[in-house]
Design a protein around this nucleic acid. Structure first.
Lengths: 243, 243
DNA sequence: CGGCAAATTGAAAAGACTCAAAGTAAGTGG
DNA sequence: CCACTTACTTTGAGTCTTTTCAATTTGCCG
C-alpha cells in the first residue's frame, strides 16, 4: 500500500536527526524525493572514492562505515541505524565518499539525489542548520576515535568500548551494569583498531583485574562502571581537568 | 591607525575559507564584530572541554589543535595558519571545544562572539553554507588520520607525512622533490602519533631503503615521489581500487 | 550428534616505546 | 673567534605491547 509506505517514510524522516524540528512541509517534500533500496547483510551501499550522487537515510538495519588497507584489515569509523544519515559530508566537500559503507544486517535506506538535497537546503535554512550540527557532532566523534587510537592501549580501548556500550544500552543498578554485546570479538577489534585475538586477551585481562565479569560470550557484567571508565582513561564530564 | 587595521582585517576575512564568496557587506560586518588578541609561542588559545564562547580566525602565526592524555603525550589533530577558522564545530555541537589549541609561534587571532556569529549565519545563508563545507572537509581529514593511525605502521605514517608536505610545498622536478621541513622530529611525532626517537629511526630506515635522502635536519630530497607514496600506502586519486 | 563459526590460548616475532648516553647544530656572550 | 649554552637529534639496549600463526576449544544450530 503506497499510502502506508509514505506515512512510514514521513515518520522516519521526521525523527531523523537531519530533519528534526523542520516544518511538516519540508519533511514531506524530502520524503517524496526519497527512493527506497534494500541491502543484504554484507552488501556495500557505497565505496570510498566513489562519486557521491546522493544522501541516504537509514530506515531499517545496521550499517558500518569503514576504511580498509590493501591487506583487507579494516577500521570502523561509525555505525548507523534507523534515523541515521549517510554520505552527508561527501555532498558538501569533494565529490566522493570518504569511507565504504557496508550493511551488517538486512537494510533499507532511502536515497535523496544530491541535486534535490541541495535544492531543499536552499529552500529551508533549518535543514542546512541541522546538517551543520550533524557534521559538527561527527567531528567530535572522530576526534574521540583519534585520541583513542593515538593515546590509549588496546586494553584501554576495549574497556572504553565496553563502557560506552554499557552506558548506551546496558542495564544499570548502582555502579553495576549488565550489558549484552551485539558485536563479535572481530567486530569489536574492527571498531577499536586491533585484531580479534588481542581483544580476546583484553577481555581476559579485564576480568582478571575484576573490571568486568564475562557471563557468556555476548553477556557481561561490569561491577563498577566508574572504575572501568577510569581504567579506560575517559574523563567524565564532571571531572575537572587541572592545568 | 585604526583605518589600516580595519582594512587588514577585512582582507583577512575575505580570504578566509569561512567567508569566501560572501558579499562585501557580510564580510565587513563580521570583521567589525571581531576582536583581536595575541598569543606568545606555547600559549593556549583554548582548552578541550572549555565552554566555547566564540570562534577564531587566524591572522598571523601557526597553531595546532591537540589532544593529550594524562601523562602528557599528545596527538595533533590539525594545524592552522592565516585564514584558518578555529572552534567552528564547537559552536554547532555541544558547548565545549573538542581539542586544545596551542600557539606554535607568535599568533594573532580575531574572535567573534558565539552569539554574533549565529546571528550572522541567520542573516546570510552563504556563511552557513561555507561553515558546512569547512566542517565536511575537516571530517574528511579526520577520517584520513584515523585510517593512518589504525592501519599503518609508524614508518608508513612518517612516509605519508613527508609525501604530504612535499606535495604541499616541496619543489618538484620530475619524480624528484626537494622539501624543507618546518617541524622538529618531536613535532612530526605528535602529528603522526608516535615518539621522537621512533620518527628518527624511521628517517634512517627510509633513507636506507632509498626513499628519501636527508640533506640536513630540516632539508630532504625525495628521489621518487610515487615510490614514497606507495610505500606509505596512499592511493593517488588516479589509482583504481579493485573490488 | 556433527559441523561450523567464533573464541581462546600458546608461542614466536615484529613493532613500538622508553631511558640513558652521546652527538650535532646554531646561537650567545665573552 | 672561541667556548658555552641550549635545543634538537641520533643511537643503543632493554622492555613492553601488539601482531601473527597455528592449534584447540567452545558454543550453537540444524
Amino acid at each position: 500500500v503506497p499510502g502506508l509506505k509514505t506515512t512510514n517514510k514521513i515518520s522516519l524522516f521526521r525523527n531523523a536527526g537531519l530533519f528534526r524540528g523542520l516544518t511538516r512541509e519540508v519533511v514531506t517534500r524530502a520524503a517524496d524525493l526519497a527512493i527506497s533500496s534494500h541491502l543484504n547483510p554484507g552488501q556495500i551501499l557505497f565505496y570510498e572514492h566513489e562519486r557521491a550522487s546522493g544522501l541516504y537515510v537509514v530506515s531499517r538495519g545496521e550499517l558500518r562505515s569503514i576504511r580498509q588497507d590493501a591487506e583487507g584489515r579494516e577500521q570502523t569509523l561509525a555505525t548507523a541505524s534507523r534515523g541515521a544519515v549517510l554520505g552527508l559530508a561527501a555532498l558538501f566537500s569533494g565529490e566522493t565518499f570518504f569511507s565504504t559503507m557496508v550493511a551488517d544486517s538486512t537494510v533499507e535506506v532511502f536515497c535523496i539525489e544530491k541535486h534535490d538535497f541541495h535544492q531543499l537546503c536552499r529552500e529551508d535554512t533549518g535543514l542546512l542548520r541541522n546538517a551543520v550540527q550533524m557534521l559538527a557532532e561527527q567531528i567530535r566523534e572522530f576526534a574521540e576515535i583519534i585520541e583513542s587510537l593515538a593515546l590509549r592501549s588496546v586494553e584501554q580501548r576495549v574497556a572504553e568500548h565496553l563502557a560506552l556500550v554499557a552506558d548506551g544500552r546496558g542495564t544499570r543498578s548502582g555502579k553495576t551494569c549488565l550489558v549484552e554485546l551485539r558485536l563479535t570479538r572481530t567486530g569489536i577489534a574492527s571498531r577499536i583498531g586491533s585484531a580479534r585475538e588481542v581483544v580476546s586477551r583484553a577481555f581476559t585481562h579485564l576480568e582478571e583485574r575484576g573490571l568486568i565479569h564475562v557471563t557468556s560470550r555476548r553477556l557481561l557484567t561490569i561491577p563498577d562502571m566508574p572504575a572501568l571508565s577510569e581504567f579506560a582513561g575517559i574523563a567524565s564530564r564532571s571531572d575537572g581537568l587541572a592545568l
